[in-house]
Design a binder for these strands. Sequence first.
DNA 1: CGGCAGCCGTACCGTACGGTACGGTTCCAA
DNA 2: TTGGAACCGTACCGTACGGTACGGCTGCCG
Lengths: 215, 215
Amino acid sequence: MPVTIKVNEEVFTPRQQAVLTAALDLLVENGDGLTMTAVARRASCSKETLYKWFGDRDGLLTATVQWQAAKVRMPQVSRTGLTAKTLRLSIEQFARDLLTVITGEVSITLNRTAVTHAAQEKDSLGIIVLENGPLAIRRRLKPILEAGRDARLLRFDSSEDAYRTFFGLVVRDVQIRLLLGDKSLTQSNVTDNIEADVKAATDQFFALYGAKATV
Amino acid sequence: MPVTIKVNEEVFTPRQQAVLTAALDLLVENGDGLTMTAVARRASCSKETLYKWFGDRDGLLTATVQWQAAKVRMPQVSRTGLTAKTLRLSIEQFARDLLTVITGEVSITLNRTAVTHAAQEKDSLGIIVLENGPLAIRRRLKPILEAGRDARLLRFDSSEDAYRTFFGLVVRDVQIRLLLGDKSLTQSNVTDNIEADVKAATDQFFALYGAKATV
DNA sequence: CGGCAGCCGTACCGTACGGTACGGTTCCAA
DNA sequence: TTGGAACCGTACCGTACGGTACGGCTGCCG
C-alpha cells in the first residue's frame, strides 16, 4: 500500500512526492528559473500530468513549498520537569534549531521564492513559509516561555514580545544577508559559529528575561 | 546648468533620473513585473534610449536600485560631547531610522527585488542593498558605540557583535515578515508602534551593553 | 540654411515559456 | 481478451517580453 503524507488537507502520492522533490531540487539549483518543462523532464513525467495534478505553475510551486516547509519539523522540547537547567537547554535548543533552519540551503530557497512571489501581489507562499517557519517556532516556544514564567524562572509581561526579542537575538542580520546573497557569509562560515551564537543569544535572552534580570 | 547626482561613480542626468523615478514607481506599484516597454511608456522615452543609457534590463534595474538606495541618507548623529543622555538619544535615533527605513514601501520593494535577483545567481543588487542598508547603519553606528565604550558608558568586546545585537533587537522579525507579505503587519500597524519599539529596543540594548550591565 | 546628433514612437524579430492536444504504452479490471 | 484509465513523450499554440531597426521630429552648431 502506498504511503501518503498528509499536509494541510493535501495528500500527495509517492509519485507526486517524487515530482515535488524534483521541483524543489530545481528550485535550489537554478534559483527562480523553475519551468514546467524542466520539472517534467527531471521527474520523467509529462507536462499534462503536472497540470492535471497541480492545476498550473502556481499550484505546483505552492504544493512544493507547502510540502517541503511542512517537512521542517523541529524536535519537540518537553516542558515537563522544568528546572533552570532544562529551561536553558530548551531555549538553547530552540535557538539552535532556528539558526540551523534559516541558514539551510532549502530554507533560503523557499524564503527567496516566497519573497519573489510576494513581490507579485501573491502572498500565499509567504503565508505558508511564515506559518512553517517563524510562527511554528513561536507556537512551540511560547508555552515553554510561559511555563518558565510560571516557575518564576523568567520575567516578562508579554510572551509575544519575549518571543520576538528571542527571534531578533538569534537571527540578527543573518537571514536578510543570506537572502540577499551576501558572499561573506558562506555556509561554513555561519554553521561553524552556530554553537557560539546560540550560547551568546541564550545568555542575552536570560539577561533580559531571566528572573534576576534588571529590565 | 543641470544638476547631476553622483552615485558610486555613476552620474545621471535629470532626464535619466526621471527615467529611474519612473522605473522605481513601476517597481513599487507592479512589484516585480518591470518591463522595458512599461518603463519607456511611463517615462515617455523610447526603448532604444533605455538600452542606450543602461545597456540592458539588468543595467536599468541596477541603476534604479543603486540610485534610490543611495538616496536613503539617514541623518548623521554627532559623536561630540558624548554623555549618557546624548548617547542614548543617538542610539534611539539609529533605531528609529532603521525601523523607519525597513518598514518603508520603497525599502521593501528594493529588498524584494534584490532577493529575487539573488535567487538567480546574481548578487549585484543584493550587495548594493546591503551596502546602503544594514552596512551603512553599521558604518555610522560603530564609531558611536566605540566612543561610548571609550567614555565608559558601554561595555563590549566586539563592536561588531554589539552592532549585530542592536540590529536584531530593533528589527526582530519585522523585516522578514514584511518581505513575505505578512498582512497582519499593515503599514500603520507598524509605524504606530515605532516609538514604543525604539524605546524597548534601546532599553534592552543598554541592559545588555550598558556600563552597569550584568552580561 | 544645411547637416547632424539625440531622441521619440512604433513596428518588428526571436525566443522562452505557460498551457493544450494527441498518439502511443502500460496496467488493471471486468 | 478487451475496454479504459492513467500517464509518458512530443509536438504544437499563443503570448509576453527582451532587444533591434527605422522613420520622423527637434534643436544645436557650423
